[in-house]
């Protein structure tokens, strides 16, 4: 008994995709690396926010901070 998969290049490509050793590792590295890069960029972005020329500093998100958010 043979398994009948349609003779379709797309299906063949997808099978190659899931069956090739190493591609999983590449995928995992892409996902992991992508997340790390995104996290790094976000942290940098937050850190860089400190260079803005704003004299007030808030230890907590106080009403002053919130009310400013509404108006500006």
């Amino acid at each position: 008994m043979h398994l009948d998969y349609p003779d379709n290049p797309l299906i063949e490509f997808l099978y190659w995709l899931i069956n090739t050793p190493g591609l999983g590792g590449i995928m995992a590295s892409v996902v992991g690396g992508g997340i790390l890069l995104a996290v790094g960029a976000t942290l940098r972005w937050i850190s860089k926010g400190g260079q803005a020329l704003e004299p007030e500093e808030f230890a907590y998100p106080t009403p002053a901070l919130h009310s400013h958010e509404d108006t500006g």
């Binding site: 942290l43 937050i46 803005a52 704003e54 500093e57 808030f58 901070l65 958010e69």
Partner: peptide, 13 residues
């Protein structure tokens, strides 16, 4: 990470 707590940082966080 050099947190100052200014408005921009809070909003970004």
């Amino acid at each position: 990470l050099g947190w100052r707590g200014n408005r921009t940082q809070w909003i970004r966080l």
